[in-house]
Design a protein around this nucleic acid. Sequence first.
DNA 1: CTTGACTCTTTAGTTGCTACAGGGTTTCTA
DNA 2: TAGAAACCCTGTAGCAACTAAAGAGTCAAG
Lengths: 160, 160
Amino acid sequence: MKIGELAKATGTQVETIRYYEREGLLPETSRTDGNYRIYGEAHAQRLSFIRHCRSLDMTLDEIRVLLRFKDAPTENCGEVNALLDEHIGHVAARIRELRSLERQLKGLRDLCQEARDAAHCGILNELARQGSEGGSSAAGHVHGAHGRSVERKSINDKRK
Amino acid sequence: MKIGELAKATGTQVETIRYYEREGLLPETSRTDGNYRIYGEAHAQRLSFIRHCRSLDMTLDEIRVLLRFKDAPTENCGEVNALLDEHIGHVAARIRELRSLERQLKGLRDLCQEARDAAHCGILNELARQGSEGGSSAAGHVHGAHGRSVERKSINDKRK
DNA sequence: CTTGACTCTTTAGTTGCTACAGGGTTTCTA
DNA sequence: TAGAAACCCTGTAGCAACTAAAGAGTCAAG
């Protein structure tokens, strides 16, 4: 099948499929005379696997690990279990962070019940207060389920 | 004070400060003869405000709205309340999504209790199964507290 | 006067795609 | 059989909110 059919079959966008190929998650396929990619059932299954993992919010790096195991079926799958445990840990941590965030936001919201002039708005005044670092999760603000991986990397000591 | 001192005073990175200036969140400052930016107390307070908002996971666009109100103290702050309510809604929605995700992941994890060969790993086999779309949140996977704004935009019908 | 710490601008990288430009190919229809 | 519509190709740029690094200038201390 051609890329558009694979896209329809798996509910994926065509550009995403080409992106996965560039990223090495899908193998390079053979081509028709007109340079069109052609896919078989195995490709569709592999892509479904990837999309399923993505729907569980795994990163492409995590998915790469899982694909390595799928490609080597005699390997011991202990690492798969570990990866999933770690991923669950990420998600649980994020939920905790967001719950703390929700509490803070609700507390903030309570500071201004009725609309008045901005100079006396309890919300704006509270947000202007200094030294609010000691919240709960010192790590900072929250992005994906894969919290701080990028930031951590950047915190690599560069001062000598 | 110079940019490095401001950075230290507010716990912000120097590059981030310059980035905020480019983005219009901080005003362009006056400069020394040597073309160094110089900041005063007002800048430090504004930057603290921004960082405080960011620690509450607001987007820069949301913060821009709040800053508009801080800069116009006679305006009615009703929109501030609305913005915060909406933000709280985002966060609550994300928590719900992540909880559902956590349940799915734990269910998946239960499928492989002991490490064995990958071909018989319940996790890998389940992930390979087709048609897993009907999860719980049909929107797809989860990114920030500001869920799908980008994706939504891209779903703009382009077919005529 | 030189070393080192600081600052400047500009550019590219991060993640996981998405969208576009500017082509070529295939397929359908008149 | 021509021409249009629908598909496909590569390559590049954009999103958010920064971070990092290159290459150069400025300033304070020893």
